[in-house]
Design a protein around this nucleic acid. Structure first.
Length: 433
RNA sequence: GUGGGCGUAGCUCAACGGUUAGAGUGUCGGGUUGUGGCCCCGAAGGUUGUGGGUUCAAAUCCCAUCGCUCACCCCA
């Protein structure tokens, strides 16, 4: 049997509604924050990512889907959204048209990792970037957006106003005036203790030194005692920057903790960094994460263009939503046309056309079946009403409208069928609310 | 890339090395001509992931392989 490739998942009809709800909710949130959508290609020249993300990150070195185009160019499936967006902004000089660029994008990303819970090779992100400002309030708004989407979606689908079980961690990674000093001291410190570190940490001290603080091994924790801590190196400007973010978070009542060890995986981050973490997701607990990247545009041979961004992991939010929701959301149909026989179908078709034009969800049978199986089908499609149309109805020129939830049925004359139907639907939807 | 767990019907799972591999659920049909959900009856649906081995006998034990899954690594 042909199967999907490892780490690539189908989103099946029974799950697609939840995906649509998340996307719709995200879009609603973005519009309330004044963000506009940008859609960039799924494939870029590999260089876009090696420059942007960093040549020596794991993502670029061993996780990218890289291949040669027919003319020999090296191309890659995007492993994240920021580099491509920045490329597009610079290519189209959007930063010259407006001083501040506020965009979002929703779509698949690709990383060749070993799949596990909350981690796939094709996964989806809801991504936000605010470019052209170095102000801390931009950082704050990005965090606010992440919080709004995740916790707002929780409120929406759990029908509850209490807080979801989430932890917002923030930190500052420092700026060019303080970050390098710490890095230097840390590298020196680590160099002197290589033999005390686990193999992973030995590698980490080369690739991403800050990550050694995340190691779970006692051996490494001991070796790191007395290590230079970033928080002792952070300059006054960075402290002030983070303080503004904190004050703003307080003002909108978003709870957070400062985690001085919080690090980002990608090279381009500086200053504010954050993660939104759940304990209900297994090992991959981060639902959303992001931070500031003031040097990224320059790394990509662009002008100085500060920015801040974040991404929500859709699959992870879906996992949470499935725990939060009382029951699975299901597609529903407004009207199932139980037309028996060709003449009945032909009679109903013009009505179906008008109903569909009015946005009513209508299903019709293809096969000539008995009423019993038609009603069964209506039930399976979760229809609110069945419009029964058989020989006797055709003769009397009155269709039978059955309310499938209340079991009651009424006759509607053909002449007034459309307005009557639309009216009934309108009223029943009003009652439902 | 490394390690653990698991592969039986569409799905969730049973079956001590021993008849024809079962149940629930789902699907389809029926329960008097045109009234769904609940209930009752019936049918279809399996090369027990695949290939080898041990044995009189393998879904069951062993080996290999493929796949899924969880964790490490890394990250949303």
């Amino acid at each position: 049997m042909l199967t999907a490739i490892r780490g690539f998942k189908d989103i099946l009809p029974q799950d697609s509604l939840l995906w649509a709800e998340i996307e719709a909710f995200a879009r609603l949130t973005f519009s309330s924050f004044g963000l506009r959508e940008i859609r960039t290609p799924l494939i870029e020249k590999t260089e876009v990512f090696t420059r942007g993300i960093g040549e020596h990150t794991d993502i670029v070195e061993k996780e990218m889907y890289t291949f040669a185009d027919r003319n020999g160019d090296s191309l890659s499936l995007r492993p994240e959204a920021t580099a491509g967006i920045l490329r597009a902004v610079l290519e189209h000089s959007l930063h010259k048209e407006m001083s501040q660029i506020r965009v979002f994008t929703i779509g698949p990303m690709f990383r060749h990792e070993r799949p596990q819970k909350g981690r796939l090779r094709q996964f989806h992100q809801i991504d936000v970037e605010i470019l052209g400002t170095a102000e801390p309030l931009a950082d704050f708004e990005v965090i606010w957006l992440a919080w709004s989407i995740v916790s707002g979606f929780y409120e929406r689908i759990s029908q509850s106003s209490d807080r979801p079980n989430l932890r917002l961690e923030i930190n500052s990674l420092g700026c060019p005036s303080c970050k390098p000093r710490h890095r230097e001291d840390l590298l020196l410190f680590l160099e002197n203790r290589q033999e005390q570190l686990c193999p992973d940490c030995q590698r980490r001290s080369q690739s991403n030194p800050l990550r050694v603080f995340d190691c779970k091994l006692e051996q490494c924790k001991n070796a790191l005692k007395g290590a230079p801590l970033l928080r002792n190196y952070i300059c006054p400007d960075c402290v002030e920057h983070l303080k503004v973010v904190q004050e703003a978070l307080h003002a909108v009542n978003i709870p957070f903790v400062i985690n001085p060890m919080l690090v980002r995986g990608l090279d381009y981050y500086n200053r504010t960094t954050f993660e939104l973490i759940s304990n209900e997701l297994g090992a991959q607990g981060t639902v959303a994460a992001g931070g500031r990247y003031d040097g990224l545009a320059e790394q990509m041979e662009g002008p100085h263009l500060p920015g801040v961004g974040m991404a929500v992991g859709c699959e992870r939010l879906i996992l949470l939503a499935e725990q939060w929701a009382e029951q699975k959301s299901a597609y529903s149909t407004d009207i199932f046309v139980a037309a028996m026989g060709n003449e009945a179908v032909q009679t109903a078709l013009p009505w179906i056309k008008e109903l569909r034009k009015s946005g009513v969800s209508v299903l019709m049978p293809y096969e000539s079946k008995g009423l019993k199986s038609l009603l069964k089908a209506a039930d399976r499609h979760n229809a609110a009403y069945a419009l029964i149309l058989g020989e006797s109805e055709l003769q009397g020129r009155r269709a039978m409208l059955k309310d499938l939830r209340s079991h009651s049925q009424t006759e509607i004359a053909f002449e007034t069928l459309l307005p009557d139907l639309l009216n009934t639907l309108k009223n029943s939807k009003k009652d439902a609310k």
